[in-house]
Nucleic acid binder design. Structure first.
Lengths: 155, 155
DNA sequence: ATATTTTCTTAACCTAGGTTATTGGAAAAG
DNA sequence: CTTTTCCAATAACCTAGGTTAAGAAAATAT
């Protein structure tokens, strides 16, 4: 049922539009999920370092909204999507729910610099491992804006 | 364990900062959850019409981030928070997760007018029952901006 | 019914962040 | 090592949406 694979940096594990039947558990390395907007611009939905699980939350029969890609060489366990229905413990789902709630609240009510600081505090390791432009994409701003905003604070 | 209450429009069922130990199931009427930002401005996190469940996703021991308030006279079943851990079925949690995922993606990648149209399509009934400024608050913009943006499209 | 409070709209002006372009440096690839 | 690609920073300019204010229309309260 479950199988383990080694993926190289840059490899795409799932593409938007593909049937969404898998859940990925990261044993080592780093994955990200992202979507493309109508202009073809990427928006990072989440990062998944070691120990995290990453998947599109869309129901299993529907085509995926998200791409899932390796940002580092990674060791990944691929599980069938319906495992969420049985085995996946409720505590994990509740935690994911809480993380997303926080994210929505921050997107609506905090300026970019605060979202940046919150990200750095919450995921200090990830912040060291990905380029700035990916952090910007996760925050919902451009890399230029992130540069500017960090600069503005440093005065 | 569970108790049913009638609440009047405007009544606050839970306040930010209070210990977050309850889940509210709406039998009739309409509730909303919202947070306040550092300027005291409200941001609506979600609406809960008949049949929906609403709660702060923060772990049960921690003080709530969200206010929960009745927008109409409502019939509400109040459940202890830990019911989520046992009885709450996984399908419901997965659906909540999916709704939030969509919300985050839209907040990051779609302009206000598209978020508005998506809201109207997804919750046509709610859109009829709440003032425009609450829709604006849910979308993450001001009522003035919503007026402007709707006007701009109508040309 | 009348008074009071909300809501919606419009308008003038302002600001956070987007866009495009350029530079220089750091990584990858050959 | 050298070439190419990728990345960060800066600057000039632009735009979506915020802010403040004011008036008209609804909704609530008295």
């Amino acid at each position: 049922m479950a199988k383990k694979v080694m993926v190289k940096k840059g490899e795409v594990l799932q593409r938007s539009g593909e049937l969404n039947t898998k859940v990925f558990h990261v044993q080592s390395g780093l994955l990200r999920s992202y979507c493309l907007d109508y202009k073809g611009k990427e928006h990072i939905f989440m990062f998944a370092p070691e120990g995290w699980t990453i998947a599109d939350a869309i129901p299993a029969e529907q085509p995926s909204d998200l791409y899932i890609e390796a940002l580092e060489d990674s060791e990944v366990v691929i599980l069938p999507k319906d495992i969420e229905r049985e085995n996946h413990n409720t505590a994990t789902l509740l935690r994911r729910l809480y993380v997303l709630q926080k994210r929505v609240i921050m997107l609506m009510s905090s300026p970019a610099i605060e979202r940046y600081e919150h990200f750095i505090e919450t995921y200090p390791d990830v912040a060291q491992r990905v380029p700035q432009k990916m952090i910007a994409s996760y925050l919902g701003i451009t890399p230029e804006a992130l540069s500017k905003v960090k600069n503005a604070r440093r005065k």
